[in-house]
């Protein structure tokens, strides 16, 4: 196998890796916003249940979650559903990333001073407008750097979906190495990941710097 053919094979797998990661991140982020809001509320049964679920997801290895969704869930009577490897991957990664991002959203919302809400109300804004125009934009800016960390972590975690037979980058690199007997392809796979994750890490730093330049502070 030539280097060119091997690289093309790896890139095909990496595109799938990125598509699964992107879908999981998008869905996970959408889920994390309402969950983060509820986690920020005082008391309530829904909050307690969500708290327990988020803690459980964050306290267990993503590999176990992945294996359970693909192999374990179909075997549960009545509620069991058999999913394709890609669907199972997206579901497991979505739930996992939602749990981490909900925690980030919760702490971001908590960081916004209660006085900001008061000032929004004093100006006559309705509660949803206070959230939409005052609280959320600030919470999002505060949460942006840790959110980026979650994004980077999830992209790297996507490498695990090869264990449920998805032909993504890691599965493909193992095939290439088994044919070529050249372990340097592992380094090629690592570089591909780094090309995507490095700008995201830089972006998080840039957002932080921009906030400081603007004198962004919660008073």
């Amino acid at each position: 196998m030539t280097f060119g053919r091997a690289l093309a094979f790896l890139l095909r797998g990496f595109v799938l890796t990125l598509l699964v990661a992107a879908a999981s991140l998008l869905l996970g982020f959408l889920v994390s916003i309402p969950v983060g809001i509820v986690l920020n509320l005082p008391g309530g049964v829904v909050r307690l249940v969500l708290r327990a679920v988020v803690d459980f997801i964050r306290g267990t290895p993503i590999l176990i979650q992945l294996l359970f969704v693909y192999f374990g869930w179909p075997l549960i009577p009545v509620v069991g559903v058999s999913l394709s490897p890609i669907a199972a991957s997206i579901l497991a990664l979505t739930v996992n990333s939602a749990a981490y991002m909900a925690e980030v959203v919760r702490s971001g919302l908590m960081s916004v001073s209660p006085g900001q809400r008061l000032a929004g109300r004093a100006l006559g804004l309705r509660p949803w407008q206070v959230f939409r125009f005052v609280v959320w934009p600030q919470a999002f800016r505060i949460a942006m750097p840790p959110l980026m960390n979650s994004v980077v972590a999830l992209i790297k975690d996507t490498a695990l979906i090869s264990v449920i037979t998805v032909s993504e980058l890691i599965a493909n690199v193992r095939s290439v190495v088994s044919v070529t007997w050249n372990p340097a392809y592992y380094l090629v796979a690592a570089v591909l990941f780094f090309i995507v994750t490095f700008p995201l890490m830089k972006l998080a730093g840039r957002v932080e710097r921009r906030m400081k330049e603007r004198g962004f502070a919660n008073d």
Partner: peptide
């Protein structure tokens, strides 16, 4: 609520300008 807020304004001690 809206009528009241429009007629009576408050500027708090810590101002609470929106920093973003």
């Amino acid at each position: 609520e809206r009528e009241f807020r429009r007629r009576v304004g408050i500027v708090f001690q810590h101002l609470y300008l929106f920093p973003h």
